[in-house]
Write a protein that binds this DNA or RNA. Structure first.
Length: 846
RNA sequence: GCCAGGGUGGCGGAACUGGUAGACGCAGGAGACUUAAAAUCUUCCGGCUUGACGAAGCCGUCCGGGUUCGAGUCCCGGCCCUGGCACCA
């Protein structure tokens, strides 16, 4: 038992009380978690406007980390405040359960990925419940559940029917020693993470989704997502990378055929002096077949192709190439252009062939100087003369055409259009649009993923698994060794099947889907999670979509968010829903970072880096409310947060302060109505009331779209400080002000620290939970004071603060300002100009 | 390398639209209460200079320039840090 101490002195409502209760979160939190759940408060409540609130679902890696606490505390603060504002909130949770770590853990710990995943889900679900998050658990899904991936397979088959899925060769990382495919993450500095052997590239036939068919719509959609952060839209636009230019054919010399290039600089065509091919370009091999160059070129290609992913793009990567011995012809000049294979030309972009214009492209210029190739200036910049033999820097800007036959003297901008007409007329090229975006390779040579539902038949080729046979179940009896191409390929019982068309013996596809497939439509499955006749019901989808607020890490700015947009558009075109965009508003939360013990650098917290902080200990020791308060108070959500262990204590201290405040005030305000508006108030009462309503307004604004929880919380702390400083005179007016203040404090704080506020709310005599109580409303008449402070500057430097009546005119403000001794001292008598920002600032220029 | 973002006290951060830089909190100092400690309460807390002790002045938001009556905020050029780069999710 403790004495209240000095806290009560001079404050009649605290006098002599013994405070028996100390803030002890453990029992309180369990109690309220139980009550919320028993009353089913987090299923969408009838009435009110719909609000679909969604945070990116977690990968069940084992235990939650601080990044999870952050994103789910953010979502919960938004969700609870919306509930209080009367919205019909849908707030589901599930598990992104397929993925590589389960397989690694299985190999390492001799467990099964399914078991490992199930155990992790069970554990993490418990952790999320202990955080007191407002989820509707009846909608929980796990993507490794056949009831989920059945519909993913179904969606894939619809794409296959529409030509949106196709097969093509692609390279994967290949460790010769382990004889296995490696993810990029499993390659460290070009070496295998297990055996540290060299990693090469292996060509495999794989499945692709034709996301490029939606490139234009995905790009255009970026202009109609006002609720997304501009920086995410910028990254998506750049990722799609639309460029307009021309396709031009360069005839081969001495044989049939041509090399097609895409260029945005068709205006420099007269200056194209050689051709660069990607090593993967089919002509690279074909042109040298049977020639003296064959062996050398093949060796070069083999070397580059095997290395490319890791070497290309590396800082010290030397640009190099090799001559094929063949030539093509410049369509305008007829000049002979030697054809090179160059390591910096990418097969994925454009046509895999680049017309090289050394005078107007730096890379081409470096290459030309290195291999002694001609440089011809065709665009002369204004006010300078480029000299082909000596120039060291390529000119990439606009100018006037030279060395371009009949087009000399034209501006390069005008010529860009003119040459396209010329090329089209003569059939040597045409206007063209190119995207940097590539089709999405979805085949993985992994076990722990959704099987790709196709069958390879010797007679009928690729045959889709009939809808009635879905799902293609992932077998459980597979041996994971970390060796071999696809784990499923070694499982005879899985591989051998019958062709659905001819009934003959056939083989199943043994690759599984990229796990981004699951996360591209899970937000739709939440709307109808138990449907076994369709992925989801259209009516339900139309009732809830789009997601009103999506929250997740900035690291997903491009891939996941773009894939989800793509899926939504495809499903819309399949007639499965009306919405064409999945997420109306997006909040990208910054990362929680910490020093990586291996590198000593401050990096994103991740298990693979070994720099995670386990929130469990924090919750054990201080409770979920403190953990949530701490992480929300530490920084605004979109900013990165560098972890420090020190400040948690302060968050707990604040909640204890609130606890004591209510415990000590409770009797004084018991049975009092919180309605001081009509009464005549003293200055101190009016000041507290003003503070209360300013706080409500501030917190409401910060929660509504701005999401600056840290400043919302700081204003709640200021209100708490004001309440501690307030001296109650025991009058009915004072008690009403006090009651109103305490209730507003608890209401404003509830979205952030729900358990402690519920407990205190109940202690004030309320039967209804705070979640079901209306959000406090600011009273505009209580917000303004009679006097305001004006900042007085002289020549932009602060010289004084003055108090003036709220409705003072500029002349009055200047008069009062000049009465200030300090202002007079600096201004002298010679004020040249008065700049007055009404209600804020006066700057006297002398 | 390419794309995107960030840099403010000892620390996390605040300053929302170009208008008082450092709210709120952490850490720290001093004091009250206590036999003592913890807890709690009061108070100080960017640097420098002056001070008749009320205060006043100068410098200060990564660095260098610029625009403006006024710049943490806008513009130009650097440096450093972080995320993503298509098989971690």
């Amino acid at each position: 038992m403790r004495r209240a101490g000095v806290a009560g002195r001079g404050r009649p409502w605290m006098d002599g009380r013994t405070v028996e209760e100390r803030y002890q979160p453990r029992s309180i939190e369990a109690k309220w978690q139980r009550i919320w759940e028993e009353r089913g408060l987090f299923a969408p409540r009838p009435g009110g406007e719909k609000f679909y609130l969604l945070e990116m679902f977690p990968y069940p890696s084992g235990r939650i980390h601080m990044g999870h606490v952050r994103v789910y505390a953010i979502g919960d603060a938004i969700g609870r405040s919306l509930c209080m504002k009367g919205r019909r909130v849908l707030h589901p949770m599930g598990w992104d359960a397929f993925g590589l770590p389960a397989e690694n853990a299985a190999i390492q710990h001799r467990t099964h990925p399914a078991q490992w995943t199930r155990e992790n889900i069970a554990y993490m679900r418990g952790q999320l419940r202990r955080l007191g998050l407002s989820y509707d658990w009846s909608r929980e899904i796990a993507t490794c559940d056949p009831a989920y991936y059945k519909w993913e397979q179904w969606i894939f088959l619809r794409k296959l029917e529409r030509g949106l899925a196709y097969r093509s060769d692609a390279y994967v990382n290949w460790c010769e020693h382990c004889e296995t495919v490696l993810a990029n993450e499993q390659v460290e500095g070009g070496l295998c993470w297990r055996c540290e052997g060299p990693v090469g590239q292996k060509r495999l036939s794989q499945w692709f989704l034709r996301i490029t068919a939606y490139a234009e719509e995905l790009l255009a959609g970026c202009d109609h997502l006002p609720g997304w952060p501009e920086r995410v839209l910028t990254m998506q636009r750049n990722w799609i990378g639309k460029s307009t230019g021309a396709e031009i054919d360069f005839r081969l010399e001495g044989r049939d055929g041509a090399i097609r290039v895409f260029t945005t600089r068709q205006d420099t065509l007269f200056g194209a002096t050689f051709m660069s091919l990607a090593p993967e370009h089919p002509l690279a091999v074909e042109l040298t077949r049977g020639t003296a160059c064959e062996a050398e070129v093949k060796a070069f290609i083999d070397r580059v192709v095997v290395q490319d992913k890791f070497r290309r793009g590396a800082e010290d990567y030397e640009k190099e190439g090799i001559f094929t011995g063949a030539y093509c012809l410049n369509p305008m000049t007829g000049g002979r252009m030697p054809i090179y294979v160059a390591n910096f030309v990418l097969m994925d972009y454009g046509t895999g062939a680049v017309m090289a214009v050394p005078a107007h492209d730096q890379r081409d210029l470096d290459f030309a100087r290195k291999y002694g190739l001609p440089v011809i200036v065709v665009v002369q910049p204004e006010g300078a003369r480029l000299d082909s033999p000596t120039m060291a820097e390529a000119w990439t800007g606009p100018g006037v055409m030279v060395n371009s036959g009949p087009y000399d003297g034209m501006t390069s901008e005008a010529f860009k259009r003119a040459i396209v007409d010329d090329l089209e007329r003569t059939g040597r090229g045409k206007a063209s649009v190119n995207y940097r975006l590539k089709d999405w390779g979805v085949s993985r040579q992994r076990y722990w993923g959704a099987p790709i539902p196709v069958i390879h038949c010797g007679r009928d080729g690729i045959v889709p698994v009939p809808d009635g046979d879905l799902p293609v179940l992932l077998p459980t009896d597979v041996a994971l060794t970390g060796h071999g191409v696809s784990p499923l390929a070694s499982l005879e019982s899985f591989v051998h099947t019958r062709c659905p068309k001819c009934g003959g013996a056939a083989r199943r596809e043994t690759d599984t889907f990229d796990t981004f497939m699951e996360s591209s439509w899970y937000f739709l499955r939440y709307l109808d999670p138990h449907n076994d006749g369709a992925p989801f019901d259209r009516e339900k989808a139309d009732a809830w979509m789009p997601v009103d607020q999506y929250i997740g890490g900035i690291e997903h700015a491009v891939l996941h968010l773009l894939y989800a947009r793509f899926f939504t558009k495809v499903l819309r075109d399949l007639g499965l829903l009306g919405a064409g965009e999945p997420f109306g508003n997006l909040l990208t939360q910054g990362m929680v970072r910490k020093e990586n013990p291996k590198t000593g650098k401050i990096e994103k917290m991740s298990k693979s880096k070994g720099n995670v902080v386990d929130p469990e200990e924090l919750i054990e020791r201080y409770g979920a409310d403190t953990a949530r308060l701490f992480i929300l108070f530490a920084a605004p959500p979109e900013k990165d947060l560098e972890w420090s262990d020190t400040a948690v204590e302060g968050a707990f201290r604040f909640l204890s302060r609130v606890w004591r405040l209510v415990a000590q005030t409770r009797d004084a305000i018991a049975g009092v109505a919180p309605t001081p508006a009509g009464s005549a108030l003293t200055t101190a009462q009016a000041a507290l009331r003003r503070r209360v309503h300013q706080t409500i307004k501030r917190v409401s604004d910060d929660l509504d779209g701005r999401f600056h929880f840290n400043t919302a919380l700081s204003s709640i702390m200021e209100l708490t400080n004001a309440l501690y400083a307030y001296e109650d005179d025991g009058s009915p007016a004072s008690r009403a002000v006090l009651r109103e203040a305490i209730e507003a404090l608890l209401g404003c704080l509830h979205p952030f620290t729900p358990h402690v506020t519920e407990e205190l709310w109940e202690a004030l005599g309320h039967d209804r939970t705070l979640v079901e109580t209306a959000w406090p409303a600011p009273d505009p008449s209580a917000l303004e004071a009679d006097d305001i402070t004006i900042v007085v500057q002289v020549n932009g430097r602060l010289r004084d603060n003055i108090r003036v009546p709220r409705d003072a005119t500029k002349e009055q403000v200047v008069e009062i300002a000049l009465a200030s001794e300090n202002v007079r001292r600096h201004a002298g008598g010679a004020v040249k100009k008065e700049i007055y920002v009404p209600g804020k600032l006066l700057n006297l220029v002398v």
